[in-house]
Design a binder for these strands. Structure first.
Lengths: 337, 337
DNA sequence: CTGAAAGCGCTTACAG
DNA sequence: CTGAAAGCGCTTACAG
């Protein structure tokens, strides 16, 4: 059933029916006519075609969301936050998984743009992201979530990574550890980079000598990469008693590596994660980690992009959420040596 | 940039440009003209407006996907499977979280329909689902994934729940357990209902007396409900040595409950889950569970709905995937009593 | 308060 | 091989 169809049945003009269907313009129509229209529409289960409306108004009320991997447990809560907030304002999210490959991401962005999204929320940003340039050229409203670019050409909502790493460092220092290794996440990502800097900054603030700032690289935020990175760290720094992992997935990989080497956590080595993703309180041992407000991050990202759409500019901003330390069983006083 | 804009620049008719843009009709246009059009389009970064095309052709190439809760780790892999398959065929998924409330789900379905989705994949189905009736009335292509209705008015892709429960039952029986409790999931859902039946059937097949078919109900598939259900089971059946949980979340709730009661798993009580969701191999103890092919389920659901869209009817079907038992540390020989 | 008309950006049957 | 025209279902400036 269409506007035209209803109009014919009712013997009025389509524009009259159209005005009744929109609460904003309903008052322009006589009360009696409006009631007849409404009744007839309900009778036929009339559902306005939003695509046609979008074509006409050049507003789809759709926000595209690009994720690197929905299977990574940090993203569902972010997505939930985005959706909750968008829905409140009459928007929907068009979510797609694009992986980490820029070519594929570009393709996905083009798909989203071809579908006339009003704005884009990217959870895929790298520190120097060619895809973002592409989006900017297209002139869509744009916000980055969870990760940010180094340049500030686009607004973002992120965790305060320095603060998070400082919490982790101070926790193990307070326990009495002096030989810490940071399992560094991908340096192409702001999270990996800033956590590394945060680690170095926190150690410096506590007067730790440069030579005692131990690092081991992980190629990706995966359990497997964490295992490899941890094995490497154990080889190179046998003196280490605490591992600060770049995220929880890496921390779980550490568990694998420690088990392989016959080391116990936390008796031999303490481990701290990052994210507090679901169920890390159930692993063995329960993971001490830095909790990031992923849902809130999604909400803020949606609000930010909506503000852009309303033209409430105010320039590029970066919104940083404060993380929180969650102490569980994977950290303890260091072993005697 | 639009077709019209390009046509004006090139001095040809919009329909000519349109024909060039579509690979299917490109051959209708002279080689030389086609090349000029393509070059000009590339130069302006022309991106066809799919909404306009959808309006005209009455085909959006969008499939709506409704999930109860993206935060539940079983859904991301399903979603990934759906997206992978849809993308191959030029479709995109419009994913929304709707929770378990039918009124909210109805609202969400209406949103999706208003956005002109060609088809719907529901991961929210209940055994008798009013929302499905609503979808059917609207006349969209429709498939149910992971869960199914009791009536067979709609095609579905599900796990073979009887087979899964039989694997679980035979595993603990083989270990020597004789007093099993099944932590029953919600009976409004096909998964909860069929796993319960599968449990009863498997026990019957092994000649277990009716009085030894122990059950405890859980109100939802959550860790908290699993804890409550397990506590209840421990009170009512102190003789039980093995718990077969309706899903992994319930199984994790059992871990909480057992810990509260000072019982060890698997020494005092064995626990089997269902789903093999991510990271249950890392909990303490690693969970023995029934692995369900969620990604494959998503792929099949997408294929099925695409087949419907192509008009390859063949009536309503139910595709059942075979589960697989994954034995880990949460099951062992029963304690001496 | 209501109607007539134009147009959003495409696609496609019909001509030539 | 190319063009002219109609129309998908809306919205909205303009009349009356």
């Amino acid at each position: 059933m269409t506007l035209k169809g209803l109009a014919e049945i009712l013997g009025v003009h389509t524009s009259t029916v159209g005005r009744v269907m929109d609460p904003e313009t309903r008052h322009m129509v006589g009360e009696e006519v409006a009631q007849r229209v409404l009744k007839e529409a309900a009778k036929h289960g009339y559902r306005p075609n939003k695509m046609a409306a979008a074509l006409r108004t050049r507003r789809s009320n759709i926000v595209g969301v690009m994720l690197p991997d929905i299977t990574n447990p940090v993203f569902p809560p972010i997505l939930l936050g985005i959706e909750d907030e968008l829905r409140k304002h009459g928007y929907v999210a068009l979510v797609t998984n694009a992986g980490e490959d820029p070519a594929q991401q570009r393709f996905v962005v083009d798909q989203l743009l071809a579908r006339q999204v009003d704005a884009l929320i990217l959870a895929t940003a790298t520190r120097d992201d060619p895809v973002i340039g592409h989006c900017l050229e297209a002139g869509v409203a744009l916000v980055t979530v969870n990760r940010s670019e180094d340049s500030s050409r686009v607004s973002s909502v992120v965790n305060d990574e320095y603060a998070g790493m400082r919490l982790a460092v101070e926790h193990v220092l307070a326990l009495g550890h002096s030989q810490l290794v940071h399992l560094v996440g991908p340096q192409t990502l702001s999270t990996g980079h800033l956590r590394k800097e945060g680690y170095e900054l926190a150690l410096a603030a506590h007067g730790v000598a440069r030579d005692d700032v131990l690092l081991a690289e992980c190629s990706a935020y995966t359990r497997e990469a964490g295992r490899a990175g941890c094995l490497d760290a154990l080889d190179r720094y046998p003196q280490a008693t605490a591992i600060l992992a770049g995220n929880d997935l890496l921390a779980l990989g550490c568990y694998d590596a420690l088990r392989e080497r016959g080391l116990r956590c936390p008796e031999d080595v303490s481990v701290v994660g990052h994210n507090d993703m679901p169920f890390v309180d159930m692993v063995n041992p329960p993971l001490t980690t830095v909790r990031i407000g992923h849902h809130a991050m999604g909400v803020q990202a949606a609000q930010l992009v909506l503000r852009q759409l309303r033209g409430e500019g105010g320039g590029q901003v970066e919104i940083r959420l404060k993380p929180e330390l969650v102490v569980r069983g994977s950290t303890a006083v260091p072993r005697k040596r």
